[in-house]
């Protein structure tokens, strides 16, 4: 149709092109694979996912001299400042025997949620170079960040056990449940990050709201106070706050570690349910837009 100076060969109509493609078995580009296939591809390429997570983990610390040490120092400073402000100044220790251990668990566990959601939501928009250069299931980027952040949190968990012993908690069998609580949290955070990554790729402005949302969640998730004690008079509010997906992992870890709390299996079941549902919903929501992440 274009009257070109050198005469480009006349373009095929859309129908002719499609017929030619089908005759020779060409695949249409840019569509997204069926959801099941997508999940299978993610699983098949898990070694790439591992490479990507490790790369992202070191990318983050590449320019700090103390490198990985910050993963220990940050939660430590946070615990100290929260203890000064909330523990001593505002005194939110009500109803908690071992407040330092209680607070440390809150800070470390919520710290993972907070950093994974903050960086993970930017995993696609922040890596457009990679997205525009290579073809791979895009969900690997946000999932890679979650894995990287989980790895980075492990030293802090080590510190947590030290704090437990130092504040007089005695090792008990339920300490073995801590990794289970962490896995539950990884699923929950993974689902939220996948949703966040898609939302941000559609509208970057929303990225400015994420720190606000995280701060709000930090204050209602019982990081430095006991939800049970503070919401005692309002059973409905208490249950909503307790069963909220970012508060649950904190509660579960506290039940596993602290002597003053016992395991409540209802909470564990709720956590597992949140984890599976949010992860699947997150994957599904992210997959819906798979073809469009390169556009940016």
């Amino acid at each position: 149709m274009t009257p070109a100076p050198n005469g480009a060969p006349p373009a095929l109509t859309a129908e002719e092109a499609m017929a030619l493609a089908q005759r020779h078995g060409l695949e249409r580009l840019g569509g997204r694979p069926p959801f099941g296939v997508y999940i299978r591809r993610l699983w098949q390429r898990r070694s790439f996912l591992w490479t990507l997570s490790k790369a992202q983990a070191s990318n983050e610390n590449a320019e700090d001299r103390l490198g990985v040490l910050w993963h220990l120092l940050n939660p430590l400073f946070l615990v100290v400042s929260y203890f000064l402000i909330f523990g001593l100044l505002l005194d939110t220790r009500k109803g908690v025997d071992n407040f330092i251990a209680f607070l440390s668990i809150g800070v470390v566990v919520f710290g993972f949620s907070s950093s994974a959601i903050t960086t993970g939501s930017k995993a696609v928009v922040g890596n457009l170079n990679l997205v525009r250069a290579l073809r791979f299931p895009r969900a690997m980027l946000p999932i890679g960040v979650v894995i990287a952040e989980a790895l980075a949190t492990l030293p802090a968990f080590g510190v947590l056990f030290v704090v437990m012993l130092a504040t007089g908690e005695l090792p008990k069998l339920s300490w073995l449940l801590v990794p289970v609580a962490f896995l539950i949290q990884i699923g929950i955070v993974g689902g939220l990050v996948l949703v966040g990554a898609r939302v941000l790729s559609v509208s970057r402005d929303i990225g400015n709201l994420i720190p606000v949302a995280i701060r709000l969640l930090r204050y209602v998730s019982g990081v430095f106070f006991s939800i049970d004690v503070y919401a005692d008079g309002h059973p409905l509010v208490r249950e909503i706050l307790n069963l909220q997906p970012l508060a649950l992992p904190i509660t579960l870890t506290r039940q596993a570690l602290l002597d003053e709390l016992s395991i409540n299996w209802t909470y564990w079941a709720a956590g597992a349910a949140w984890s599976v549902i949010l992860l699947l919903v997150g994957l599904w929501i992210f997959w819906r837009d798979e073809a469009n992440y390169g556009r940016g």
Binding site: A21, L26, R28, L29, G30, A291
Partner: peptide, 9 residues
């Protein structure tokens, strides 16, 4: 992704 049109490969 193309805004309109198709690519087969």
């Amino acid at each position: 992704p193309p805004t309109r049109g198709d690519i087969w490969i």
